[in-house]
Computed example of a mutant assay.
Amino acid sequence: MSDVFPVLDLRDADRGPEARAAFLDQLRSAIHEIGFFQLVGHGVEGADRLLELARDFFALPEAELEQLSILKSPHFRGYSEVGRERTQGTPDQRAQLDIGPEHETLVPGPDDPSYLWLAGPNQWPQSMPELRPAVIDWITELTQVSQRLLRLILASLDAPEDFLDPVVSPDPHVHFKLLHYPGRTRDSEHSDQGIGVHKDYGLLTLLLQDEHGGLQVSVNDGEFADVPVIPGAFVVNLGELLEVATRGYLRATTHRVVSPASGVNRYSAPFFFNPRLEATMQPLPTRFVREAAGVVHDPANPLSSSYGNNTMRGMLRAFPEVIARHHPELLQRQT
């Protein structure tokens, strides 16, 4: 099923009216029918270097990685060892470094929304000073690509291209991860679950993956298709907030990552383009949305039009140890 996922060339959007119209038709078909596509022609360089830095980071001594533990951060930033993050209650078999916009430490007041905890400082390894500038440059470039792609998505739906500018400007709450999926082991109860079945919280995800693949997308109920590896391409998928903004015309597609075979190490770098923390999504002014049937109703995953609330709900499930250590009051509200 390698032909399931369209390959779109971003340069086509600037190659004249006919090429742009064809590009927008391809884009609308991909985001409406599948929710995933591969993007080439984006102009972002340095992918090989970033994956090399990921390999170097996860090869650091465990004691140094533990100094960056996400358990030390009330802002959900830092290093997670294999099994720390959970999907649907099951430990994911991957290690990761979570990075967000650089902010000073902020302690929300008792009447402030809990999602303000998502803003705060990052944790960087002292022995790899080259990692921070490389990641910040990468985030800057992918933010620009994402902003352009979001405007093209709106154009493909006959909506004003700038309609979501107030939602993402001037301070989109982007999120970046370096990921390491170790090969399967016999003694791991959940060895096949690199990351379990899930949807992304925000607007857009741009994924850089290495040559090993492993990403699978739900194309029919219970049927998953492998996303092929295309050198230099970003795998792009839609998040839950675009499903909300289009009343279900666009879907946040379910996906997962299968752990690599024994002895194989997979590295990837997803970039999540999200609204401002306090932003609330409004329906796009277009006939595609007016005629849509509504978002998917899932009692186990009720969607919120508030980006901050939608994401904080996910953090409660994904990082229960961080919540218990730094935000026990949030657990009390759930009971």
Rank of each mutant, 00 (worst) to 15 (best):
A225M: 01
H327N: 09
R132G: 02
N122Q: 01
P166T: 10
L116T: 03
R184C: 01
G202S: 13
Y181H: 14
P108N: 09
L206V: 07
V257L: 05
V244I: 12
L60W: 07
P320A: 05
R28D: 12
T246D: 12
R333L: 13
G120K: 02
D3S: 14
V244K: 08
Q209I: 12
S146L: 05
E66D: 15
L164A: 09
F234V: 02
Q216T: 03
S114G: 01
A245I: 08
A279W: 06
P172S: 05
T286S: 15
L206H: 09
I34S: 06
R94Q: 05
L60C: 13
A159C: 15
R86E: 06
E240Y: 00
E223H: 07
H180I: 00
A155R: 13
M1C: 10
K72Y: 12
H326F: 02
N274M: 02
R290G: 14
P283G: 11
D9S: 10
V296M: 02
A155H: 05
H212T: 11
P133E: 12
R84C: 04
A13N: 11
Q334F: 03
P160S: 14
A54M: 04
H198T: 09
A155D: 14
V235S: 13
Q26H: 14
G35I: 05
Y115H: 11
L68V: 09
A13S: 15
E18F: 03
H255I: 08
G120E: 00
V322Q: 02
W124Q: 03
S268K: 05
A225S: 10
A155C: 05
S127D: 10
D92S: 01
T254A: 06
L154S: 09
D48C: 06
R276H: 07
A63S: 15
D298F: 03
L284S: 00
E141R: 15
D9P: 06
L50R: 14
P129E: 08
L179C: 11
P299G: 08
G263E: 10
P110E: 11
V322C: 05
T205M: 09
Q88M: 11
G120W: 01
L206W: 12
R266G: 03
T280V: 11
L142K: 09
W124S: 00
N237D: 08
D48S: 15
P113N: 07
A54K: 03
Y201M: 08
G213K: 09
G239H: 09
S169E: 15
G314A: 10
M281C: 02
V82R: 13
D48F: 03
S218A: 13
L215N: 05
